[in-house]
Computed example of a mutant assay.
Amino acid sequence: MVTGGSRGIGAAICTLAAAHGHDVVVNYAHDAEAAEQIAEQVRQRGRQARTVRGDVSNESDVKHLFDAAEDLGPLTALVNNAGISGNRPARLDEQDVETVRRVLDVNVTGVFLCCREAVLRMSTRYGGTGGAIVNVSSSAAGRGSPGEWVHYAASKAAVDTLTYGLAQEVAREGIRVNGVSHGLVDSDFHATAGVPDRAQQLGPGVPLGRAGRPQEIAEAVVWMLSPAASFTVGAILQVNGGR
């Protein structure tokens, strides 16, 4: 299951996971057509796919999402990719409380709700056979994103802490929990935030000299889900071009 799987990094994760043998549930919030296009790409790679609409910050939506996923069989992997910045870049004292609450609801509460449902299904404590969870974070968590999205950075720092703590709780129950923390990526995340050229403007300042591509983040996520990462627990893998 990939939350926020209809676009950007999430879409790249869905199609690459299919290429590595996973059936995929593509979660989306609004754009059903885009989600179905990604599902069709999964099917073209010989795997099953289902699209499920749902707001990850809504408990009933999340329960429906996980129940619907059972059509494809037992859940073996969850990627918490859904995330928002809330608005255009601005200082913290220019933010309104409703925007900040919405960002925390999606980016933090959403990860909590999805992790909880996944554990209830995958943990050997509850009769499951194990699995893997990857939480998609951001290098903003370490930089703080001053003058842009301090609230977003704080939400991703919370995701990193949740990732490490949950990993300790469920490692002996057959579930590996890890994170992938990406840097500047050339995706429609920036257009949604009202700054479509942000990746092009800031890319030259990355030590590698460019913004990342969604596929590059997807490679790290799918590796974390694979048996090749079987001894990797509670790690936050930095995929950020050096920044």
Rank of each mutant, 00 (worst) to 15 (best):
K63F: 00
P89Y: 04
D55R: 14
I133H: 06
G130C: 02
G127S: 09
E70I: 02
N135G: 01
A69Y: 14
I133D: 07
A69G: 15
V134C: 02
R116N: 14
R43S: 08
T129C: 02
D71G: 00
V52S: 09
E98G: 05
V119G: 10
H64R: 15
T124G: 02
R43G: 03
N81V: 06
R45D: 00
T76P: 01
E59N: 10
R47Y: 10
A49I: 02
S123V: 03
L92D: 01
A39G: 02
A39W: 06
G130E: 06
V79T: 07
Q95E: 11
T109D: 03
N80L: 06
R125Y: 04
R91P: 11
A77I: 03
N81G: 10
A69E: 12
S85N: 12
R101D: 15
C115F: 08
T129A: 13
S138D: 05
G128K: 04
L120V: 00
V42Y: 05
Q48I: 01
R116K: 15
E40R: 15
T76F: 11
G128H: 05
A140H: 13
T76E: 13
R43I: 01
A132G: 02
C115Q: 14
V79M: 04
V119W: 13
L65Y: 05
S85P: 00
V79C: 05
A132W: 07
N58S: 13
N87W: 06
R43H: 02
N107H: 08
V52K: 09
T129H: 15
T129E: 15
S57K: 06
E40H: 10
V42Q: 12
P74K: 12
Q44C: 03
E94Y: 00
R116P: 01
L120Q: 14
Y126S: 02
I84W: 12
C115M: 14
D55L: 06
V106D: 04
G142F: 06
R45P: 01
G86P: 09
S139I: 13
D71M: 10
P89C: 05
A69D: 13
V52P: 10
N81S: 11
D105Y: 02
D96R: 13
C115L: 12
R101Q: 15
P74I: 00
I133G: 11
V111D: 05
F112I: 06
